[in-house]
């Protein structure tokens, strides 16, 4: 893991260049993509299609190895259940995304593009993350907890 952080930095730069080149880092463009009833700009659908295609192929190549180049093991999410937290959380996330045209990756890049707006959004996002963690800990949306009540 000695060179892990260096690799993560280079991956972060690569990801961010991808956001900048594709238009994902421009909230106006993201909103034009989500605004299907307005002057719809469908080009961002190609960003996800392209990213998923490259990742789909690349993942199959790199995970043929027994372990990653710089770490002991692959850490891949194992959950399969479609629970209420997943769906409610994603739905709430989408509302925020559709209001300002920003999601977490572009928001970090935005700190160097439009620091004023980005700082407000990122500050609120961190507060939201802390709140989200608290909500998860209460288990109000957890299927298991509600099953116990029934």
């Amino acid at each position: 893991m000695r060179y892990g952080p260096l690799l993560a930095f280079v991956a972060g730069v690569t990801f961010s260049l991808g956001l900048l080149i594709s238009g994902m880092a421009d909230p106006a463009k993201v909103l034009a993509f989500l605004d299907i009833a307005g002057n719809w700009d469908p080009s961002l659908a190609l960003v996800m299609a392209s990213a998923v295609t490259i990742n789909f192929i690349g993942l199959r190549i790199v995970t043929r190895r027994a372990r990653p180049l710089l770490a002991e093991a692959f850490s891949i999410p194992a959950r399969r259940d479609l629970d209420r937290e997943l769906i409610a959380g994603a739905a709430v996330f989408g509302v925020g995304w559709g209001l300002a045209g920003l999601c977490p990756g572009p928001a970090i890049a935005a700190l160097a593009i439009a620091p004023g707006s980005a700082a407000i959004f990122v500050g609120a996002m961190l507060a939201g993350m802390a709140a989200g963690r608290a909500i998860k800990q209460t288990g109000v949306l957890s299927d298991r907890r509600s099953a116990q009540h029934q």
Binding site: M1, G4, L7, A8, V10, A11, G12, T14, F15, L17, G18, L19, L20, I21, S22, G23, M24, L46, V47, M48, A49, S50, A51, V52, T53, I54, N55, G58, L59, I61, V62, T63, R65, R67, P68, L69, L70, A71, E72, A73, F74, S75
Partner: peptide, 17 residues
């Protein structure tokens, strides 16, 4: 740009898992 985003994800999984 999407290809770069995908490449970054491959680097993260292949490099540090």
């Amino acid at each position: 740009g999407g290809a770069l985003i995908g490449l970054a994800a491959v680097m993260m999984m292949g490099g540090i898992g």
